[in-house]
Design a protein around this nucleic acid. Structure first.
Lengths: 159, 159
DNA sequence: ATTGAAAAATCTTCCCC
DNA sequence: GGGGAAGATTTTTCAAT
C-alpha cells in the first residue's frame, strides 16, 4: 500500500473537497476517469481514505467556545486508562482526546455553546467520573486555524 | 437561519457521512428527496454546512505523531498577534491553532511523521519566526478520539 | 492507461396536495 | 412546506485499443 505521486495528488484534492466528481477529480490529476476511479476505490479499501464527511460551522450551531481540558487520573494503570478512554468518548462535546506524555494525563478539546455549558460538562460529567483526579481548563479565545487535511509528503516511495 | 428538528437530523447524517446521496439521506430523515434537497442546499448556502472533505488516515500517511505546542509571543499587540496568525497558518503541519486565554499565547497541534520532523519544524520554522518568545511541546502518546462532527443540540428554536 | 459507449443512478424541475 | 413523477444530466461500469 505505497502511494505514488498521483495518489498523493488525489488525496490532496479529496481532502480539500470530498464532493468532487470522479470526472472532475480525474481532470485535476491529469488522468482519465476510469483509472482515477480505480485509484480512489483502492485508497478507500486500503483505509487511506477513511471516510467522507460534511464539516459544519461551529458558530452557526452556537458552538463558539472551544476549551482544552487537561485531566489527570488518580492511577495510571492500564485498566484505569482504558476505562477513562471508553467513558470520555461517550460525551458528544469531546471533539478530541489525547493521552499525553509527561504528566501521564489526558488533553481533550470540547466544543460547547458557552461557559454555562462548559460548567455543566465539567461539574456534571467530568468531575463525577471515577478515577479523575485533577482538571484544568484553558479557554480558546479564537480558533485561528482548523483543518482536517493532513500534510502530504512531497515525495513518497513509488507505487 | 434557525434550524428545526429535521435540519438537525440532516446535519447529523451528513457530518457522519458526507457522501450520502440525497435519496438515501431523505429516507433516513423521513422526507422525500425534493424537500430534502432544498434543505441541504439551504444549509450549504447559509454556511451551516461549510464543505465536504475526505478524511485520511494519519497512520497510513506516516503521520503518527501529534504534538501540542504552546507558544508565547514577545508582545501581544494586535499587530503582533495578527502577524503570527498569518504566518503560522502557512505551515502544512499545523492542523489547529488557537489563541488561548491566560498566558495570552497560542496552542497549536501539529501532525508530523516522527521526532525528527518535529525537531525540524520547531528549529527551522517555529523558532526563527519573529515575535516568538517561548515554545513548549507536549507529545500525544495516543489519539484516543478525533471527530469532526459537532455536537448537535437535541432541541433548537423552531424554523 | 485511454477511449468510447452503454447502463445505472442521480439530481433537478414541475405540478399537485 | 411536502410529495410524487418525469426529464435531463451525470456518473459509473465495461468493453476494446
Amino acid at each position: 500500500m505505497s502511494l505514488d505521486v498521483i495518489d498523493v495528488r488525489i488525496l490532496a484534492e479529496l481532502q480539500q473537497d470530498g464532493s468532487l466528481s470522479n470526472v472532475e477529480l480525474a481532470r485535476r490529476v491529469n488522468l482519465s476517469p476510469s483509472p482515477c476511479l480505480v485509484r480512489v476505490k483502492a485508497l478507500e479499501t486500503q483505509g487511506v481514505i477513511q471516510r467522507y464527511v460534511a464539516l459544519a460551522d461551529p458558530k452557526a450551531l452556537g458552538l463558539g467556545l472551544n476549551v482544552f481540558i487537561s485531566i489527570s487520573l488518580k492511577q495510571q494503570s492500564k485498566e484505569a486508562l482504558a476505562d477513562f478512554e471508553t467513558r470520555i468518548a461517550e460525551h458528544e462535546e469531546v471533539m478530541e482526546c489525547y493521552l499525553m506524555s509527561g504528566d501521564s494525563d489526558y488533553l481533550i478539546r470540547v466544543a460547547v455553546a458557552d461557559i454555562g455549558a462548559l460548567e455543566r460538562f465539567i461539574l456534571d460529567q467530568l468531575s463525577p467520573m471515577q478515577g479523575v483526579e485533577k482538571i484544568r481548563s484553558s479557554f480558546a479565545l479564537k480558533q485561528v486555524r482548523y483543518k482536517t487535511a493532513l500534510p502530504l509528503p512531497a515525495v513518497l516511495p513509488a507505487r
